[in-house]
Amino acid sequence: MTRAADIDRPDVIASGAGRPLVLAHGAGGAVDLNFGDVIAALSARRRLVGVNYPGSGSTPRQSRPLELEALADGLVAAAVADGHDRFPILGLSLGCAVAVTAAQRHPDRVSGLFLTVGFARADAQIRLVVDVWRHLAATDPTTLARLLVALSSPHVLSTLDPAATERAVVDTAASLPDGGPDQALLAATLDITTDAAAVSVPTTVVVAGQDRIVLPTTTRALARTIPGARVLEYPDAGHIFTPSEASTWIDDIGDFLDTHGL
């Protein structure tokens, strides 16, 4: 049974035309923020559908804790309401857990999973980042933005002079959704190990080799849990991809969809 009604007035983002690809965004993100490049590149031949979690986009923030099942059910309900009976899901970070949960709860709907920088359960790194994130979100959002920039890949940080660093901090602070702390808390407390082990649809897992939010070893552990999952390694990538890394990612998404006829 879907539980879309559990999310108050969900903000559904849909664009493009063609076969569907459903988008599950990350904690502290939003559909347009996390998947803007994907939407721009694929909307000429794909129907892209996503839902902003409570506190992102125009979905109201909830007073109650977020539930992974409600996010998964709401995502599936939005895709079905858009006219699609069966569809693959592209997940990013927390969105990977949403995608896996959707596949487990709606096996008749989910046809494939492309999971990017995800995890089955939080490790010490994720828990510590979330603890600091939630504290700074309540007390000093600008310093939170500095922390998130500081967690960029070494390659990205090496390209930032002082002025570019400050621009990155300002841009990051402006993009922080009100519901980010709630989404981060869910990320730090979930455990989808059992559901991941039961995945039976084609699955690819992308590992970012320089990720300092979701460690590459943690994403590889997710991949090992999913039967038959293919692993793609992006050795120099951090949690947020550069434009060139995003271009490779989009090509890999397209190859996955084409290979499996999704």
Rank of each mutant, 00 (worst) to 15 (best):
A184Y: 13
V156Y: 14
S200G: 14
A198V: 09
V199P: 07
T139Q: 04
R105W: 07
T139S: 07
A77L: 06
H84L: 06
A99N: 03
H155S: 13
R121T: 02
A97C: 06
S93E: 09
L94C: 10
A168I: 07
S153H: 03
A137P: 01
L92Y: 15
G180C: 03
L186Q: 07
A77D: 15
Q183G: 11
V199Y: 06
D178I: 09
G179I: 04
A145G: 11
V205F: 05
G91V: 05
G74T: 12
P181Y: 07
G95S: 06
L185C: 06
L160H: 04
A138L: 10
T116N: 12
L71G: 04
T203E: 12
P154I: 12
V76M: 10
P202S: 04
A137V: 11
A198S: 14
S152E: 12
H135C: 09
V110N: 06
A198D: 14
T143R: 15
V76A: 13
G74H: 04
D140Y: 01
A196C: 02
P107V: 02
A97D: 08
H106L: 01
S175A: 15
P88E: 05
T165S: 13
G83Q: 11
A150E: 07
A187Y: 03
L186Y: 00
D161K: 04
A164H: 14
R105I: 00
A72D: 10
L148W: 01
T194Y: 10
T143D: 11
L71C: 04
R121P: 07
L128R: 14
L185Y: 10
L113P: 06
D191R: 10
V201C: 11
S111D: 02
V199L: 04
A174L: 09
T189R: 14
F87T: 05
A150Q: 12
P181C: 07
P154W: 13
H106I: 01
S158A: 15
G112V: 08
G112T: 12
L128F: 11
A197P: 00
L75G: 07
V76E: 06
R167N: 12
L186P: 10
W133K: 09
R105S: 09
V110T: 04
T189H: 12
A124D: 15
V149D: 09
T194C: 09
D123V: 00
W133Y: 15
R109D: 04
A168E: 08
T159C: 02
A124R: 13
A198N: 12
C96Q: 09
T204V: 04
G83N: 01
R127I: 05
V129P: 05
P88H: 02
V170C: 11
A102I: 07
A137N: 05
D140K: 01
G95E: 05
I192K: 12
S200H: 14
A99K: 05
V199A: 08
P202A: 05
A174N: 15
L186K: 06
A145S: 01
L128H: 13
A77Y: 11
T116D: 01
A120W: 02
L144C: 01
A173I: 03
A196N: 08
V117R: 10
D161Y: 00
V201S: 02
P162G: 03
G118S: 10
S175I: 10
L186N: 12
T142K: 15
A70N: 03
P154S: 14
I126L: 14
H155F: 11
A72Y: 10
